[in-house]
Design a protein around this nucleic acid. Structure first.
Lengths: 125, 125
DNA sequence: ACGCGGCATGTCCGATGTGACATAGGCACC
DNA sequence: GGTGCCTATGTCACATCGGACATGCCGCGT
């Protein structure tokens, strides 16, 4: 897909939480994007709070500093796999991970404990 | 890296829950593997409970039936990205996803999950 | 038995992620 | 100013992933 480049651009001036709305992203793409950003954010957060450098993390991952930088920047060229590996390499537990995911539940406004949007995808066929 | 090949082999004769222990998998690789399997499981589960076929899901994803099959089989050739896209395409919410992740929190060595019995109630409310 | 729909497995080849490297900006400290 | 450390960005060769296609297996209804 080509829109990858676009994502890059967006990634530039971005704000977790309300960005994707502008774009013509389908629900699933949107959710995935959001999740990725949240994970990227979590990586940086955890890393810095541990006093670890990008280079050190890279080494643990068998990767390179530049990739870690891109990773944390939410660059589309990094896969979810790498994001997850990074998190685990930092010692993030499943529980922590679950919390991060859970914090995105309502997409729209953060903190949205409100919407109990529990509905089926879409019955059309 | 090379250990990818290994994963393939392992994937052949596999058993959810107690497999990774034998292999020389580092904690992070192990966690990732486990997460992937749980997600794959969740895909199949959600899909079947909706009465959707692999082919239909594949179409929604812009993919093919064979890939979905591999996906659900936990084949290493499918990325976490695809796994997540599949879940979202099935209408799984962040909340549901978080629950799946949370259900793995303790899987460490012992304890839980021996073999196949470890089936969580049923994610759907 | 036959056909059929759903799933699994294997193999291509084009698309994309990955590590390594180079390079630059920002800071702190001497 | 100069040095060292951390991070950001770009590029590239190579490995892996991804969709498509082919094929086989299995259960089921006719």
């Amino acid at each position: 897909m080509k829109p990858r480049k676009r994502k890059r651009l967006e990634a530039a001036g971005w704000r977790v939480g309300d960005a994707a709305e502008f774009l013509g992203l389908s629900g699933e793409e949107r959710a995935l994007l959001e999740l990725r950003l949240a994970l990227a954010d979590e990586v940086r957060h955890t890393r810095t709070s541990q006093g670890t450098t990008q280079a050190q993390l890279a080494e643990r991952l068998g990767s390179s500093q530049s990739r870690v930088a891109k990773l944390e920047a939410g660059d589309p060229s990094v896969s979810a796999d790498l994001l997850l590996r990074a998190l685990f390499a930092l010692g993030v537990s499943m529980r922590d991970l679950a919390e991060v995911v859970a914090s995105l539940k309502g997409v729209g406004g953060r903190g949205g404990a409100r919407g109990r949007s529990r509905r089926r995808p879409d019955p059309r066929r």
